[in-house]
Write a protein that binds this DNA or RNA. Structure first.
Lengths: 190, 190
DNA sequence: CCCAAAAATTAAGGTATCTTAAGAAATTCG
DNA sequence: CGAATTTCTTAAGATACCTTAATTTTTGGG
């Protein structure tokens, strides 16, 4: 696990071994079982999770009681509910493991302590946050420019492993298509 | 201008006068006339702009030649094309002043030089980027949860000054509604 | 102040996508 | 292995929103 996060960090900022050790010692490991929640609605999201291995989804319940998936995260991704974690407000969303998932996690206090101790970590998270923002802007672009069918084909092409690992109705939810209509789209493509 | 940005910075991080002076001396002022471009499509976005006063829109042209507005920014906002600025890739979008707009701007090199000289600035931008990400996630939520009419009423309520300062067809574009349909929605509301 | 250009409105017809409801297929787990 | 549960498919009817095209209203520069 230490190797994995070291490699991940090194993609963005160079840390020496003392720094890595100091940071790593504050990261807590945990395993979530399939269907277990990392975060439930109406509670403050206390942690930022780095996924060592597994799949996590973020979703909320709409007025009609349908689950609306807003994000998937896999190995080497950070996942949290940003707004809840940063502003310490109750989350409107759930975080749930879709497979057995191993994470390293940090509380906000720990993270802020580490920012002050290791300014390079602040740089790392500045960069990670920039990348998240860019990813998010791209996602918005896709919804702005593509119709349902195109969204599905481009998603299937971009992350083919997801099509295997995640049920189709969850992909439909993430792509903002009803499962029925996605089914129809797939039928007409074949 | 110096006072304005000092006050703005102080919202997030405390800087002393030496730091403010050091940073401020690297910020270049510029005035853009109404309809003037801060950035054009297919060029790398070289700067990050802090709006002292004015309105700027970010938009792209779709396949049919329609302008699609993705963002508005006013006094005390930063605006740039994130992906282009950070990754130094050609922008797919335009940035255009909708009124006479005064900005302070920074190049990427300058910003990175300043990050190293003033680690607190890295903190400032880490926080600003987090806030942008949160704003973006909220925007996505609105599109996920609301129908056209609701999007318009909530927008009109959230930023009433925009309704005055920006033509209706631009608001329609930002809200992803055709101007014709927005017109119909407004008629049926009155 | 007037005219050209820009912006907003109206209306008819069309379509992408949803809703509902049911049944079929695939997984899971005792 | 078999029953229960979960996931996927089919189809008919409904609707939110778009397209096109024409007309009206507003705005701003000379």
């Amino acid at each position: 696990m230490k190797e994995q996060i070291k490699t991940y960090f090194a993609r963005y900022v160079e840390f020496n071994d003392t720094e890595i050790d100091g940071i790593y010692s504050e990261l807590k490991p945990r395993v979530f079982q399939k269907k277990e929640f990392l975060l439930e609605e109406n509670t403050v999201c206390k942690h930022n999770y780095f996924i060592i291995k597994g799949v996590v989804r973020s979703y909320y319940m709409d007025e009609k009681g349908n689950e609306k998936i807003t994000q998937f995260a896999i190995d080497n991704w950070w996942i949290t509910n940003m707004e809840s974690f940063i502003k310490e407000t109750p989350s409107t969303q759930y975080l749930q493991a879709l497979e057995e998932t191993t994470v390293l996690y940090l509380s906000k206090e720990t993270l802020e302590k580490l920012y002050s101790k290791y300014p390079k970590l602040e740089r790392l998270f500045r960069i990670i946050t920039e990348n998240m923002l860019i990813a998010n802007l791209r996602k918005s672009d896709i919804f702005l420019q593509m119709r349902s069918k195109e969204r599905y084909t481009s998603f299937a092409e971009a992350v083919p492993d997801f099509i295997q690992r995640v049920p189709q109705y969850m992909i439909a939810s993430y792509l903002e298509i009803t499962p029925e209509y996605l089914s129809e789209l797939r039928r007409n493509t074949k």
